[in-house]
Write a protein that binds this DNA or RNA. Structure first.
Ligand SMILES: [Mn+2]
Ligand SMILES: [Mn+2]
Ligand SMILES: [Mn+2]
Ligand SMILES: [Mn+2]
Lengths: 219, 219
DNA sequence: AAATATTTTTAGGCAAGTCTAAAATTTATT
DNA sequence: AATAAATTTTAGACTTGCCTAAAAATATTT
């Protein structure tokens, strides 16, 4: 099955708004996300419902069917793989790639996606730390968490920040922490919730504030 | 300026049919090429004319304006760069890439195109031996020619075939001639128009028939 | 519980791009 | 030069996706 760009964008939006296709999503939420009008959303929802991609009851919001979820995950896979390509191979910064990936995600060719995946050596996460589903639509169980939630002893790698101020980024940079940096949590201090972490060449103690603003994925 | 996918496809078709935008193109020729109906072409031509991308006189065919040509060349550049990417980086065969490039050529991002160009090390020709314009829309002077037209002494490389029968391709393969193979024309025989050519490891004589069916680019 | 505010749907309309069938124009043939 | 054939354009219709304005349903206040 092949769908229009617009249908794909709606399904992806609903997927994200519904927390992986679990809960119901309101018309207005979709409209806000896609920068369109509620009436347009209602129109589209009816078409999606006719195609059995969503379940819809008037005034009650929508949720994705299994096949709707499948389409959404396929688009997300493509979006994130292309983001990796742009950052890893074409040296884009991680905050420049979204709009381009928004277009590339609609290119249709299963072979292309699989070859790209292989070319990128089957990345498990995109440059923003979001997981990339495999070709069967399965996500790896690992999930991005805030560093302050990681137990002592765990090894993880940095995939994103919450506070993206220049100040914070400079601080991280100075201490050799960047996207993709491996970290081991050596110990956690109960008293002030500070943590001691070890990077490749360095061991340091970071404050709770810092740990609260770093996203990591546990290996 | 940004145009719809459809507009871009029309402009590209007209460019190719008009021999680089020189001659006039008939409605039917465009319809044939784009697998659409003549009436649809007339409709679109009017819109292109309103946008000053073509010059149109009823019943007299169209030709591209300078700005129409510019758009067409930009699309062709993208098409061919993506083809190189697919073959060189993702290991596609040269006969598999066209349809995918047909989609990728419409991705909008000047930065993406320039980075891709750089990543591919500024290729001058696509996998079919067609020249790739630079970012200012300029084509390198070299052009693909039939091997039988090449003078003795010249060094060229193989970029395509006219006869694509399995028989011919097997013959080439057996003699170590493939896409990209460097050839030196050692001598030409006036009597039967046969040629002696030298490849990397081998010198051989080929018939006029063979030379007539091989496209090369002179270095 | 009634009134008010918010959300969602309907009604009607518009642009892009395509189609079929019929009319107009150009080109080729007698 | 007249007729026939081919090409091109017009007329009218359809789909997709979007919009505004108004009506209907649901949610929140009083
Ligand atoms: Mn998109
Ligand atoms: Mn991302
Ligand atoms: Mn195309
Ligand atoms: Mn090509």
């Amino acid at each position: 099955m092949s769908f229009t760009r617009s249908v794909e964008n709606y399904l992806k939006a609903i997927y994200h708004l519904s927390d992986h296709g679990v809960s119901k999503v309101s018309t207005n939420a979709i409209a806000r996300r896609l920068k369109t009008k509620a009436s347009s959303v209602t129109d589209m929802i009816k078409k999606l419902s006719d195609k059995k991609l969503v379940v819809y009851k008037k005034y009650q919001g929508v949720h994705l069917t299994d096949s709707g979820k499948e389409v959404a995950v396929r688009i997300i896979r493509k979006h994130r793989l292309w983001e990796v390509f742009l950052v890893e191979k074409l040296n884009f910064a991680w905050d420049e790639v979204h709009d381009i990936a928004e277009q590339l995600e609609h290119i249709e060719s299963e072979k292309l996606v699989d070859r790209l995946d292989e070319f990128l050596e089957f990345p498990s996460h995109d440059p923003h730390g979001d997981p990339i589903p495999d070709k069967w639509g399965e996500f790896k169980p690992s999930k991005k968490v805030v560093l302050s939630d990681v137990d002592a002893g765990a090894i993880c790698f940095c995939v994103g920040v919450i506070d993206s101020s220049a100040k914070f980024l400079r601080y991280l940079d100075k201490n050799g922490i960047a996207l993709g940096t491996q970290l081991k949590v050596v110990s956690r201090e109960e008293f002030d919730k500070s943590m001691t972490i070890k990077t490749k060449g360095n061991t340091m103690t970071i404050s709770k504030l810092t740990a609260d603003n770093l996203y990591v994925i546990i290996n």
